[in-house]
């Protein structure tokens, strides 16, 4: 076996340039997914009529199918819908002018939404019911109580899971290479086939992902310490 160690370094530098795209594909879906997650959680906790079942199905379906399916369904299905609408309403607009990245972001946002809703729900359910009652007892509305009292505590509880989902999505973003996105894995693929050094390129990519994961674990550990300051027992 010959491994070109030096080439791993070259590849590392080349592939690293794709980091911004990986970050976009990781973070944008998580942020949109967070908002979707809050919406879904409220629907599920309040058992909103009609929407409740839909929300349950959405979460169950997304969690029950691979993320690759979500990307493909949106990437292949949404253009059909858009072109049809464009045809009906005579828009001078075609789906081909939409970059694929946008579809990837939309699809992964839907993916993230389902997982986020589970995390947020678990966080909210973990907050003592007494907190809500105490907030309402001093005259807060239910909305105020949720936003000012319950939610901040729920997020602190959910922090480890939020870190996990970040790492999960960092890795999931690699799937985007299948629809030819030049994020880390896509870049590794290009470096690999251009130089016919597959193993070295993927080792380099692996090192970058691994490094990013370790950094995010360390950051979470720090955040966790800060977020749960109020949770410490004792007086000191």
């Amino acid at each position: 076996m010959q491994i070109d160690i030096l080439f791993i370094f070259t590849a590392l530098i080349e592939i690293f340039k794709a980091l911004p795209l990986t970050m976009i594909i990781t973070l944008v879906p998580l942020m949109i997914g967070f908002l979707i997650g809050i919406g879904i959680t409220l629907i599920r906790i309040r058992k909103v009529k009609g929407l409740y079942r839909l929300a349950n199905f959405y979460v169950s379906f997304i969690r029950g199918t691979p993320a690759l399916m979500h990307i493909m369904l949106i990437y292949l299905g949404l253009p059909l819908l858009i072109d049809k609408l464009a045809g009906t309403f005579q828009w001078a607009f075609q789906s081909t002018s939409i970059p694929i990245l946008l579809f990837v972001l939309m699809a992964l946002s839907l993916t993230a939404g389902a997982y986020m809703s589970e995390i947020i729900r678990a966080g909210i359910l973990a907050v003592d019911q007494g907190q809500l009652e105490a907030a309402e007892s001093i005259g807060m509305t239910n909305f105020q109580a949720m936003r000012r009292i319950v939610f901040p505590q729920a997020i602190a509880v959910a922090l480890p899971n939020l870190c996990n989902i970040f790492i999960g999505f960092l890795h999931t973003s690699s799937i985007a290479f299948i629809v030819s996105q030049k994020e880390l894995t896509g870049a590794a693929n290009i470096v690999a086939s251009n130089n016919l050094k597959f193993l070295e390129a993927y080792i380099a990519a692996a090192l970058i992902y691994w490094g990013l994961t370790i950094i995010s674990e360390k950051v979470t550990a720090l955040l966790e310490k800060r977020a749960t300051v109020y949770n410490r027992g004792g007086v000191a």
Binding site: H171, T185, I203, A206, W210, T213
Partner: peptide, 26 residues
Amino acid sequence: ISFMRGTPILIQLFLIYFGLPALLTL
């Protein structure tokens, strides 16, 4: 454990696919 937790399954798949044959030729 840290490596498996730290890398996407897709990359792991490629590493084994390209790496294992190379390793076994040894």
